[in-house]
Design a protein around this nucleic acid. Structure first.
Lengths: 120, 120
DNA sequence: GTTGTATTCAACCAATGGGTTTAAGACCGT
DNA sequence: ACGGTCTTAAACCCATTGGTTGAATACAAC
């Protein structure tokens, strides 16, 4: 569920152009035309990119006559940071635990445990 | 340069299976076979996933006879968090600034500025 | 209503991605 | 040397993606 959301967010940010657009939107809202201007790709291509960003929830759009100003939804960042932090912390904890084990083994070098995984 | 790195990292994490593998590796190193076991895809598919994760710098591998234990490289997370935090902060700052402007406009409702972007 | 601007839709194309199967490589045990 | 295990390589399939061009929509201005 929220899994799919994460997939879309990461996939959206996997494209340099799209990350660039996000960077641009971080400084201020902009229309499709304004966003397309710096790049040498067609406006349609940028429009597609924005659709991807919108589907990922990274960007929202309002209406101003025929213009569609794009706005960066910074809330999604929390989703990512939460995911990242979780596993970063887990990995670091494991590292710490492993170090402790190694220290203990230096103090009392007795049993040799085989296997690659760290069981629960 | 480091741009391509970010692309590969985000692309790697855009796949649920690959995120799952990362989650699994966060609790402890594991071999390809061990990692493949829970899924109903072929071992070769998982091997490919691991290659992607390795190319992204998220996973490193050592040798233990014919086995190739996979290890999560938690350092890459910093790269992501750095990128995310940068734009999150920028967006939030802008939000704060915009709020300030709106407040000021309520105090003295005079000039009506047109345009969608918030110039520096 | 016609012209002009901003944006999207539709059809298409080349490239990539995730999956498969079959075969090969690397290593241990006997 | 031979069979068994773990892993990757190669060739292929089908769906997705990023890009194109050309037409359609939505709106403002005249």
């Amino acid at each position: 569920m929220t899994d799919d959301r994460l997939s879309r967010v990461f996939a959206a940010l996997a494209d340099p152009t799209r990350r660039d657009i996000v960077a641009r939107l971080a400084v201020g809202d902009a229309t499709v035309g304004e966003l397309a201007e710096p790049y040498d790709v067609s406006v349609q291509a940028v429009s597609k990119h924005l659709r991807v960003l919108e589907d990922a929830g990274l960007v929202s759009r309002s209406r101003d006559a025929q213009r569609r100003p794009c706005h960066l939804e910074s809330g999604v960042f929390d989703l990512m940071t939460k995911w990242i932090e979780r596993y970063r912390r887990e990995a670091e904890d494991r590292h710490r635990r492993l170090d402790a084990v190694l220290e203990q083994m230096e103090e009392a070098p007795e049993t040799e445990s085989r296997g690659s995984g760290a069981a629960s």
